[in-house]
Design a protein around this nucleic acid. Structure first.
Lengths: 192, 192
DNA sequence: CCGGCCATGTGACCACTGTCAACATGCGTG
DNA sequence: CACGCATGTTGACAGTGGTCACATGGCCGG
């Protein structure tokens, strides 16, 4: 049945499913992310993925974990060790652009009533949380680290979601970047 | 077939569907919000709702719209016309608590790849946006209104989502309120 | 007062999904 | 070399969104 030179056993179906899921998400959107579609794309029977993922949520969690890693990567690429307001704004822009570049993935990461206990997920979010805290420590040495980290992550995360939902102007990457930068600077300048 | 004293024609199935959808969301969670479940609860055939809502998304949009109205109500109840940082923090707390009190509804409002063009939705979000802008005008008369409004909404919205996703401590309402207040004050105090 | 129109509700139907259980295969190990 | 067990397959079931032709009966014109 399989198309070509294929053994009965796939080899690494677990990874293939993950790959297929990411591709589907990118190409067809979140609604196309079904276990059966994943199986089709991987060229296996519709129930084969169950050998590797207990249920749909398990697959989705694995996809989300990949997303967290890629997000962390994008942020790190924006600035190696942000220490000024401008650096912070640059990271914020990277965060929002990631969300707009991979909207379906971003939604899977945050918008699903997530399985908080998935170890992959908690590890990944802990990594992001730690990254934010390190930035805050450098940018705002006098602030309460806990509260300020929360606020910064929330601000950036909120910007991403509002853009994603079309609540803010997202007509071009340039205007998005400018808007994010302006928002970050506005809130940091406002003590009055 | 209908259970009791019922006419063939329901009377106001449109409203009944909406009501049923809200109840389902509250009682069973987002995954239980199906058109068929709505129809069952309203006591009509599974295809009846299609007379009033073109498809599932249309129903969901209507649900989201009532969510927006209720959110606006909760915010207004928190403080009639906020004008200090503390007032603002109180509104932020109300926003986050709304999200935690009605998590499924909140997700429907923001996490679905929304149908941006639904007139009900754009009107509702415009209302919230205007409300935020009015607050910002009073609290931060010197700030850029556009950028500052965006930032404030994003901050509060992000706080809500991070709590909802279990990324922040949400063990009790008191600690949530304290955390939100601390975050808002931290970011507004940080100019350095 | 009555007959018919048409919005509204019905039931059968399709394609699709998640999930399960019984079965087939063949790789790794003894 | 043969056998076990992880891996993949087949087939089935219930539930879902969505469409269609058809039934019903409230309301309006005559």
């Amino acid at each position: 049945m399989p198309t070509s030179s294929s053994t009965y056993h796939h080899g690494d179906l677990r990874a293939a499913c993950l790959q297929a899921a990411l591709e589907l998400l990118e190409e067809e959107g979140a609604s196309a992310l079904s276990l059966r579609a994943v199986a089709r794309r991987a060229g296996v029977a519709h129930s084969a993925p169950y050998r590797h993922y207990a249920d749909r949520d398990a697959l989705v969690s694995a996809v989300a974990a990949v997303g967290y890693r890629e997000l962390a990567h994008s942020l790190a690429a924006a600035h190696p060790s942000p220490s000024t307001h401008d650096d912070l704004a640059a990271v914020a822009v990277a965060y929002v652009r990631f969300a707009l570049r991979r909207p379906a993935l971003f939604r899977v990461m945050f918008a699903e009533p997530c399985d908080r206990d998935s170890p992959e997920r908690v590890a990944a979010t802990a990594a992001i949380s730690g990254y934010v805290r390190a930035i805050v420590g450098r940018c705002f040495p006098d602030a309460n680290p806990e509260a300020m980290s929360t606020a910064v992550w929330a601000l950036v995360h909120g910007l991403a979601f509002l853009h994603l939902d079309g609540k803010l102007d997202d007509s071009s990457p340039a205007v998005v970047s400018a808007g994010v930068r302006a928002a970050v600077h506005a809130v940091l300048a406002a003590s009055g």
